[in-house]
Amino acid sequence: MLKNITIGQFFPGNSLIHRLDPRAKLMLTVALIVAVFLSQGFAGFALVLLFVAMAARMSRISLKFLVRGLKPILYIVIITFVLNLFFQSEGRVIFRWNFIAVTDGGLRRAAYMAVRLVLLVTSSQLLTLTTSAISLTDGLEALMRPLKKIKFPAHEIAMMMSIALRFIPTLMEEADKIMKAQMARGADFESGSLFKRAKAMVPLLVPLFVSAFRRADELAMAMEARCYHGGEGRTRMKQLRYGRRDLAAALAVALLIAAIATLNALGVF
């Protein structure tokens, strides 16, 4: 019952996109997000969409996965759309009912915001779907390394992230098990008022917390047993190296941003 979460899910593969350097992918995703924010109209969005669609095709991720990832933000998109629709009053009124008025400007604005949100999520999904948690955190750590000079704990944060990601499925499974065990003792998680349901979660959450702490303790012990002592002086089996494909990808994103900037300059929305 808790198995349908796709956020941060990795879709294994060996495509060009999968093999990009994680640092490059991280930076390019940020650039892609900048491109989305830079677009002032649907022409720019169309370009970004085309780019994302091409990248998705190259990475052989099924469209179903990309669409499914949008599910959690569906309500946010709808609320954004509705709010913008009703509270934007520029332009010609195209629909009026009592005090509610919808203008063509509002409609445009609402669609613009909604599409922007969807594009933001889809382009960042490209990153998480094609990059395993390990290489993602490796990339993050490498990117944050310069910040170490100002005592920023880059390695620790990356390690925490990778541990957290690693344990999401484990805890999920554990929660399912405990839930079943409590249901066998007559627990009811599904009916009753909101307050009652929240209270019914206690027998699930307490054991889950206890086991999370126990696991943390065991993991710390296991890491120490293998001589873990922080990131200082640690070498890696897989060295990150930029390659020609990273350059190509960077150029592609640069071209995209340039195209959007040109559209903006020309006033094509």
């Binding site: 098990k177 405990i178 065990a181 027998p203 206890v210």
Partner: peptide
């Protein structure tokens, strides 16, 4: 039908 899961001590709360 009472059901005792594996490692039932993990369900104590």
């Amino acid at each position: 039908v009472g059901l005792v899961f594996q490692y039932p001590e993990y369900q104590l709360f």
